[in-house]
């Protein structure tokens, strides 16, 4: 399958993520949208990695593997982010009894 499809899919996912982040106010949904964006990037990385490997396998057996390793890193970071982020959201809910980000405008003052 040509790499283009993967790219389109990835872009579509990314845009959905952005749209979600921009339009939704619920912190959890925003969080999920960010995850979507991250995964869109992951998808892209894997797709390019495969493409790269196919092209250069003859010369280098490990060609393109760095992209896939990178994806692992991103997943680890995302997991860490989830734990921290969810904790923040829980704290936020405890404090203001809501997960609406529009209440989070204290920076203004």
């Amino acid at each position: 399958m040509p790499v283009n499809y993967y790219i389109f899919l990835s872009i579509a996912l990314f845009c959905i993520g952005i749209a979600g982040v921009l339009t939704r106010r619920n912190a959890i949904i925003i969080f999920m949208c960010i995850e979507i964006m991250l995964n869109a990037v992951n998808l892209m990385l894997v797709a390019f990695s495969k493409m790269h490997h196919l092209k250069n396998a003859a010369v280098d057996a490990t060609a393109g593997s760095d992209g896939q390793i990178f994806v692992f890193f991103i997943m680890v970071v995302a997991a860490a982010e989830v734990s921290v982020g969810l904790a923040i959201i829980v704290m936020m809910y405890r404090n203001i009894h809501s997960v609406d980000v529009n209440f989070l405008n204290r920076l203004k003052h």
Binding site: I18, V21, L22, V101, N102, L104, N105, R106, L107, K108
Partner: peptide, 14 residues
């Protein structure tokens, strides 16, 4: 511009 609304910041960023 510094409205304090997270959404605005993200929108600007994008």
């Amino acid at each position: 511009l510094q409205s304090g609304q997270v959404g605005n910041y993200i929108l600007l960023m994008v």
